[in-house]
Simulated scan of single mutants.
Amino acid sequence: MQVRRLAPMRGWEWIVQGFALFRRSPLNWIALCLALVGFALAASLIPPIGELVFYLLSPVLLAGLMVGCRALERGGRLELTCLFEGFRRQTSALVTIGGVYLVGQVLIYGVVILLGGASLEEFMRNVQESTPSSVPQMSGSMMLALAVAAALSVPLLMAVWFAPLLVIFDGLLPFASMRESFNACLANLLPLVVYGSILMVLGFVALLPFALGLIVLVPTVFASIYASYKDIFGSDFGV
C-alpha cells in the first residue's frame, strides 16, 4: 500500500471534506446515524452479550458507511441500505477486526484493574458521594493505571482506524489491514493530532445547547474518516 506523509493541517482539511460530504445528503446522513444510535441502544439492553456483539459488528457498520461515502463522492446517492453493505461482502474479515479490537480492550481493562482496581472503585464511589467543591484526588496507582491504559489504547486504535476501509475497498486481509492502518497513522501522527484536537473543540461546541450540534458533527466525523483514508492512501478526493 502507498502511504502519503501529509502536512499537519491536512487534519483540518479532512474535517472540511467530511462536512462537504455531509452537505450532499444531510437528511440521509442523519437517518443513518440515528439508526446506528438505535442499534447501540438496543444492544445496551442485552448486557453484556449485546454490547459485545455491537463491538464485533462496529467495523461492519463502519464499512457500510464508507461505501456510502464513496457513492456520494462519485455523484451517487447515500442509500440507507448502505449501512448493511458490510454484511454482504468481507463480513468475516470485518468481524475479525472487531474481535481483535474487543479482545484488546478487554486486555487493557484487565491491566487497568490489575494496576489500580481498588483505587479506581474507591475513587468513583467518592466522586458519587462528594459535592462539586470536594472532588477527591486521584492516587498514584490510579494515575499509573490510566496512563498505561492510554499508552495501550492509542496503538490499538491506530491499528483499527483505517482497517475496515482497507478491507472493504482494497480487499486486504484483517491483520494486513491493521498493519497498514497502524503504519499509516504512525506516518501521519501530526495531522491526526491536529484532526483529533479540532474535533475535541468542535465536540465541546456541538454539545451547546442540548447537544444539537452532534446532528451535524457525528456524520461529518464519519465522512472525514473516508476523506483521510483517500488522502493518506494516495487517492485524489473529488469533493
Rank of each mutant, 00 (worst) to 15 (best):
I46P: 10
P47E: 07
P48G: 10
I49M: 12
I49D: 05
I49F: 13
E51R: 12
L52Q: 12
V53T: 08
V53H: 01
V53D: 00
V53R: 02
V53K: 02
F54Q: 09
Y55H: 11
Y55K: 07
Y55S: 11
L56I: 12
L56V: 10
S58W: 09
L61K: 01
L61N: 02
L62R: 07
A63Q: 05
G64S: 04
G64C: 03
L65W: 07
L65N: 04
M66Q: 12
G68Q: 06
A71H: 11
E73A: 11
R74W: 06
R74Y: 09
G76S: 04
R77D: 15
L78F: 14
L78T: 14
L78Y: 12
L78R: 12
L80S: 13
C82S: 15
C82V: 12
L83K: 08
L83W: 08
F84G: 10
F84R: 06
G86I: 00
F87K: 12
Q90V: 02
Q90W: 07
Q90G: 06
Q90Y: 11
S92N: 13
A93H: 11
L94H: 06
V95P: 06
V95M: 13
I97R: 02
G99L: 10
G99N: 11
V100L: 08
G104P: 07
V106Q: 03
L107P: 02
I108G: 00
Y109V: 01
V111C: 00
V111M: 01
G116A: 03
G116Y: 03
G117D: 07
A118E: 15
S119W: 04
E121M: 09
E122P: 03
F123A: 04
F123I: 04
M124G: 00
R125C: 00
N126G: 12
N126D: 14
V127M: 11
S130K: 03
T131E: 15
S134E: 15
P136D: 06
P136Y: 05
P136A: 06
M138N: 02
M138Y: 01
S139G: 15
G140C: 00
S141V: 05
A145Y: 04
L146M: 15
L146H: 01
A147G: 03
A147M: 07
V148L: 04
L152M: 14
S153P: 02
S153K: 08
P155I: 08
P155K: 06
L156G: 00
L157F: 13
L157Y: 12
L157E: 12
M158E: 05
M158T: 06
V160N: 02
W161R: 10
W161T: 09
P164I: 05
L165R: 09
L166Y: 01
I168F: 06
I168Y: 05
I168E: 11
D170I: 04
G171L: 01
L173M: 13
A176C: 00
A176R: 09
M178L: 09
E180N: 09
S181F: 03
F182S: 06
C185V: 03
A187T: 09
N188Q: 02
L189V: 14
L190K: 13
V193M: 15
